[in-house]
Amino acid sequence: MVETTRAKEPFHFCTRMNLPSLTGLKASNLEELLSLIREVSGACIYHHTHRFLQQHQFLSPEPPNDFAYWVREVLGEDELAERLASIDVMQFASIRELRDKIADTIESFINDEPTAKKKFARKGEEMILIKSVSFVAWTKYYANDLAEFVDVIKKITIDSIYFHVFESRIRLGKLTNDFSYWLEFSLGEKEIAKKIAAFDPYTLTLEDLRQKIVSIIEKRIKG
């Protein structure tokens, strides 16, 4: 067993709870969708690119974005759906950049395949735009070293892990996830910080993500 150091600053775990808010906006075809994607709030883009992960947290890699799902299931545009689903969200540091990428992907597809504009969703199958209002609060859980950290990771809600890995990075514009930042700068655990930052959490279920983090840290503790 490796003796781990005490952190300069404890890691204080947050929890994050989302309340979906309806915008009253909906799209029936690709042009309408494109125009709405360009004008809605970042909270709306965030909702439709991250909701699936949270609500279907037990499922293995499923398109983590509603736009791809709607384009495939309702408009039947498999190719565009694939392009949207495979956008590498990890490459983008902000929702603004992600929004631009989604919009550019749709625009370029419409330019290549102009007939796609003629496909309309049936009544009741429109893409209804929703945004996430996030409430962030401190929990009672702290960690001062690796052992305490892994203990909390095992029992904290999936929402908390989600917040520190996804939301703080892309929605709040931090360059890395909170766990990696703390592990590197408060504990000096550069190696495991790097390993956790290197995951593509968008292709893992949230429980798998929890297990991966636990396994990396336990391995480090055991030496």
Binding site: M17, L19, S41, G42, A43, Q54, Q55, Q57, F58, K131, S132, V133, S134, F135, V136, A137, R171, L172
Partner: peptide, 27 residues
């Protein structure tokens, strides 16, 4: 994960809190 009474309780309390905030990320 999504349709039990506990989620409903959480949403109602968030709803009450939302009445006092206009921002999309509430601390």
């Amino acid at each position: 994960n999504n349709f039990l009474l506990t989620r409903h309780l959480r949403d109602y309390m968030l709803l009450f809190l939302s009445l006092y905030h206009n921002e999309d990320v509430v601390y």
